[in-house]
Design a protein around this nucleic acid. Structure first.
Length: 922
RNA sequence: GCGGAUGUGGCGUAAUUGGUAGCCGCGCCAGACUUAGGAUCUGGUGUCGAAAGACGUAUGGGUUCGAGUCCCUUCAUCCGCACCA
């Protein structure tokens, strides 16, 4: 009789839940530790083996920290609003609240099987009114705030009004959509509508006509991070540009802080780099070019290379540039208009696909280089983007490859101003070299020249040094049903927020979830969708990232009815110490959540500027698909080894039909699909072998491995250990169930350490031997070090080595085994609890203390020196560790093994690294 | 194109700081026990070689007494960004 994992695991899961073992609260006698998983969106497919990877790692860490004496907050919840549930509702008419609740129940059931230490009393769901109350509340605070660049933080809108009343816009340095000026003393003369309109330019949540990513198929706009290559990330539908009135969050106000904050957090370089690219800071100059013979007109450009200004031989404006009609001379009107309409009608996708195709037209106008006075032509071309910088550039073909290609194509002047390249062949884009053909900056290096040009421009008022960000404000409206309603009503066309006392504004029921194709939101169907005074409410809802931006704060105090979270709770829990989740949230959730938190920090609610101190991205678990090869045009399949003799197409086969060796169960295969009932099978050696492929784990590829089945067969402890044993958590790797048997054997071996051949508990009260203590304490040291650096795969190996060694020593001393139970409990909590109880301890082992490493037990007096000759290891020699370098050297040279390798002339040199190695140079 | 990461047996991987390459596990081979084994246990298993030994961490070079680890080159794979001025 072996270890009965099924009964034992059920018993302890019930114990934990009955005793609320993992319920936590504020405890000022213990240091806090906050371990967070990115909460899942509960999809209809349930969890596959890839999802729990991060959850298991974080749970191990949370359990470990508990053993180390920390008060650990380890909550879980659900990102419950979102598109898939709504798309499903549109197709089936089922209310998304119903499908979402079902999916959550299924997720919960799966999660509950894995022995996690979540405090479920703290669960949050973003679609729960008690939760989205505070999402709406934060929106109101954002609406009522502006960003003061002077103090580098958000402030209440009242302080802006006070400033405007007293000084107008004089001395104001605020994040805004459009620079506007208001002379002192004019504010109070503005009408209510004019004032509101003016303030909208500064609010951190604001309404604006914006070019948006409109997805007709989904009937909604999408944020930049929800669009990839012109298609929606969710669903893969085409996306087009459209001008719409939308709510936006002024995240750009925080661009600099979002960037500099990255230096303070312990995240992977690749993730930080992704965020840096997304923010896209570039430093340079804004330069004003007057237009020749049009006094009133001037073109402002942004350049990162002001040093190359003497090499600007033409200018280019985007087709959408607002001055283009004024720049176009009558003679050029027809060609320019034709070009612009063609450029505008091209979809985003066509535009992206034709990046390499050079096109443009001359406007007929000329601009004047403000430093050289040179007259240069102004062109229009779609390689200049309206949305970045000022939508116009000074083109320096000698030192910008795009300008170079354009100049070559249209035969424009190319003038070298930085030496170092060969501009007859290609542009020289590098930021190094000496300035030439450049008047007062000739002979300077690039960096000096940049500074010199900027200061000259600032002296003459023709430009200034500026910083540009690629980051855009976040579009916050969705024309969807299944999301948070905006706490906003409209009076005389102007938006006002509801009183905080009226929150939460509940999502109303509607008769159909269908969105309008031209952008009417489903909430326009809601009956009596007005505030208490009868003014119409906003019909858009908030996007998916709204609810996930502050959930980690709500976990600190999830039942609070009066506020988002109490001062006491946030003072205690502070921030997330360890955050584990997928890298796909690098530019979405993680930027928005940092922004959300920084705003709450400025307004005195959260207490840390950065919410996630350490962040780890777990790698993706890929599927291992089984492939059968179908003979083209026939209902006939050919075994893997023979497939090259036929013309075949690969067909994904359900991985359950294939055994470890890749052999297909033909009977099952024929029953799998009606089409294959009569399929011909060409065998090799009497078998049908399948090929395999590593690809995404998905239902459609029939390669999904379900954790429930594995837990049923091997138990949750084995499953947890095996997921960790696969390799480093950050690494992506294909799932292969084959190795799980090894971990299963390990669990059984562990059980056997405590039991005799009749499966009776058999422990010895005797004092441990030095050999046993050495094994135990080596394990303690390694386990502790490796958990600290989240190297969990090596910890599993360490346990295996430890149990192998203790088995060899036939060790059944309780003193040793009790410590081993605690060590292993974060990884295999169920068997640990059972053994803990059996060895006479009071449950739960989760409340035990982590064993303390004693270096005295692992200290050695003798070391087996590896002796190498010219760096190649030849033999070992055991010597006392306190032997001096000279003693070691002579002992090695005198040893019989060494004679074989020492040439007649003797060694040239001997290197002894005490306690490490000896290298003889011959 | 730019940026980041990764490359080690048949497979997943290991190797604190430059110091014994291949730990642990899968698979495979042999053996023991067994009516049986897809259970369990024992031994073996980088490549070539009978052995001695030689070779070996994607490639080529370098630094070093010594390189999987540091530097340079090339290649491959994955991820992110992509006309960002």
């Amino acid at each position: 009789m072996d270890y009965q994992f099924n009964d034992v695991e059920k018993k302890w899961r019930k114990y934990w839940s009955d005793h609320k073992t993992f319920k936590v609260g504020i405890d000022n006698n213990k240091p806090k530790f906050y371990v967070l998983d990115m909460f899942p969106y509960p999809s209809g497919a349930g969890l596959h083996v890839g999802h729990p990877l991060g959850y298991i790692a974080s749970d191990i860490y949370a359990r470990y920290k508990r053993l180390k004496g920390y008060n650990v907050l380890h909550p879980m919840g659900f990102d419950a609003y979102g598109l898939p549930a709504e798309q499903y509702a549109i197709q089936t008419g089922q209310h998304p609240a119903v499908t979402t609740a079902n999916n959550i129940a299924r997720y919960r059931e799966q999660l509950d099987q894995m022995g996690f230490t979540y405090d479920w009393d703290r669960e949050v769901r973003t679609c729960d009114p008690d939760y989205y109350h505070w999402t709406q509340w934060t929106f109101i605070q954002l609406f009522k705030s502006w960003y003061n660049r002077k103090t580098q933080q958000a402030e209440r809108i009242e302080s802006l009004v006070t400033h405007l009343e007293a000084y107008g816009t004089e001395g104001l340095d605020a994040a805004c959509s459009l620079e506007q000026t208001l002379p002192p003393g004019t504010w109070s003369r503005l009408t209510e509508a004019e004032q509101q309109d003016f303030l909208m330019n500064y609010r951190l949540a604001y309404l604006s006509d914006t070019m948006v990513n409109w997805c007709p198929e989904l009937g909604t706009v999408l944020a930049n991070d929800e669009v990839r290559e012109g298609y929606s990330v969710r669903g893969g539908h085409p996306v087009e540009r459209k001008l719409m009135k939308q709510w936006l969050l002024r995240i750009t106000a925080y661009a600099e802080r979002l960037l500099s904050g990255l230096d303070q957090v312990d995240w992977s370089d690749s993730l930080k780099e992704m965020q840096r690219n997304w923010i896209g800071k570039s430093e340079g100059a804004s330069v004003v070019f007057p237009v020749h013979e049009q006094e009133a007109l001037q073109l402002e450009v942004f350049t990162t290379r002001p040093d190359t200004i003497f090499g600007a031989t033409f200018m280019v404006v985007a087709p959408e540039h607002e001055l283009l009609p004024l720049l176009t001379t009558p003679g050029q009107q027809n060609t320019v208009e034709a070009y612009v309409s063609q450029a505008k009608n091209r979809s985003e996708r066509e535009r992206m696909a034709e990046v390499k195709k050079i096109s443009g037209e001359f406007t007929g106008s000329y601009a004047i280089n403000p430093l050289s006075g040179e007259k240069i032509p102004v062109w229009v071309a779609d390689y200049v983007l309206a949305g970045y910088g000022t939508g116009a550039i000074m083109a320096v073909p000698a030192h910008d490859s795009r300008d170079y290609a354009f100049a070559r194509h249209f035969g424009l002047t190319i003038r070298e101003v930085v030496s170092g390249g060969d501009i007859s062949v290609e542009s020289y884009d590098a930021k190094e070299g000496t300035l030439v053909n450049s008047d007062f900056i000739n002979g300077l290096g690039v960096k000096e020249a940049v500074r010199a040009v900027i200061s000259r421009l600032e002296e003459t008022g023709q430009g200034r040094g500026t910083v540009n960000y690629r980051l855009r404000d976040a579009i916050f409206s969705r024309q969807r049903y299944w999301g948070e309603p905006f706490p906003v009503y409209y009076k005389d066309g102007l938006p006002y927020t509801l009183d905080e006392g009226e929150l939460p504004l509940l999502l109303p029921d509607i008769d159909s979830f269908q969105p309008g194709r031209s952008g009417e939101a489903p909430l326009t169907r809601a009956k009596n969708w007005t505030n208490k005074e009868g003014y119409p409410l906003e019909t858009n809802t908030m996007p998916g990232f709204a609810g996930s931006s502050g959930y980690y704060l709500r976990y600190m105090d999830p039942d609070n009815k009066q506020e988002y979270f109490s001062k006491e709770a946030v003072q205690y829990w502070q921030d997330v110490d360890l955050y584990i989740g997928g890298a796909e949230h690098a530019t979405g959730h993680l930027i928005y959540a940092r922004f959300w938190n920084k705003f709450l920090f400025d307004s005195g609610h959260s207490v840390k500027d950065e919410p996630f101190r350490k962040l780890v991205n777990q790698g993706m678990i890929q599927g291992r698909s089984s492939i059968a090869y179908q003979v083209k045009g026939k209902n006939e399949f050919v075994s893997f080894g023979l497939k090259d003799q036929y013309d075949t197409i690969p067909v994904n086969v359900d991985i359950r039909l294939v055994n470890q060796a890749g052999e297909l169960d033909i009977e099952a295969f024929r029953n799998w699909r009606p089409d294959y009932t009569d399929a011909g099978m060409i065998l090799e050696d009497g078998k049908f072998l399948c090929g395999h492929e590593t690809e995404k784990m998905s239902k459609s590829l029939h390669n999904v491995v379900n954790p429930d089945e594995l837990i049923e067969k091997y138990g949750a402890d084995t499953f947890r250990l095996y997921e960790m044993f696969l390799g480093p958590i950050e690494q992506s790797k294909p799932w292969d169930t084959n190795g799980i048997e090894g971990v299963f054997r390990f669990i059984k071996k562990l059980w056997k350490l405590f039991h005799d051949q009749q499966n009776q508990l058999s422990l010895s009260p005797d004092a441990p031997t030095p050999a046993e203590l050495k094994v135990l304490h080596r394990t303690i040291r390694k386990v502790e070090e490796d958990i600290e650096r989240l190297s969990l795969n090596t910890v599993v190996s360490t346990f295996m080595i430890c149990v192998n060694e203790l088995s060899d020593l036939k060790c059944n001393k309780s003193a040793i085994l009790s410590d081993l139970i605690v060590l292993i409990s974060p990884f295999a909590p169920h068997i640990a609890e059972e053994l803990w109880e059996m060895t006479g301890h009071r449950p739960s082992v989760a409340n035990a203390a982590f064993p303390v490493f004693n270096p005295g037990y692992v200290r050695e007096s003798v070391f087996e020196y590896p002796v190498s000759f010219n760096g190649k290891m030849r033999f070992r020699i055991a010597l006392p560790l306190d032997a001096g370098i000279r003693d070691v050297e002579s002992a090695v040279l005198a040893s019989p093994e060494a004679q074989k390798w020492i040439p007649p002339g003797g060694p040239r040199k001997v290197i002894v690294v005490p306690g490490k190695i000896v290298n003889v140079v011959v």
